[in-house]
């Protein structure tokens, strides 16, 4: 039911693990629903220089987390904003319909991490 790409990212997830002193953290999902994602980003000069994830969830949840980290690494924040759940799903050669919500979760985690970065930055600049 899963594409080879999904299985590849499930078997060998990219950028998996916790990040020390991230600039932004996105936590989405809920263990009650069976999936929970955390995405950590490092940002320098508006470029996402490093990204990591940790995920509790099914094969698709892990694969979409892994894929979104690959897609976003090295991108500017504006470019990263354009990454949607469809981008993630397409990059994985598609997902079963019932698993599309996993790609939504990946998009949400990324957006939440960037939002967290922006609000921290705004805080830091407050007089």
């Amino acid at each position: 039911m899963y594409s080879e790409k999904v299985m590849d990212h499930f078997r060998n997830p990219r950028n998996m693990g916790e990040m020390e002193n991230p600039d932004g953290v996105g936590k989405v999902g809920n263990p009650v629903c069976g999936d929970m994602m955390e995405l950590y980003i490092k940002v320098e000069n508006d470029i996402i220089t490093d990204v990591k994830f940790m995920t509790f969830g099914c094969g698709a949840a892990i694969a979409t987390s892994s894929m979104v980290t690959e897609l976003v690494k090295g991108k500017t924040l504006d470019e990263a904003l354009k990454i949607s759940n469809a981008t993630v799903a397409e990059a994985l050669d598609g997902l079963p319909p019932v698993k599309m919500h996993c790609s939504v979760l990946a998009e949400d985690a990324l957006k939440a991490a960037m939002e967290d970065y922006r609000s921290k930055k705004a805080q830091a600049f407050k007089p």
């Binding site: 998996m16 994602m37 940790m54 995920t55």
Partner: peptide, 8 residues
């Protein structure tokens, strides 16, 4: 578990 934020 090594990937799981719940376990961490």
């Amino acid at each position: 578990r090594s990937m799981s934020p719940l376990y961490r």
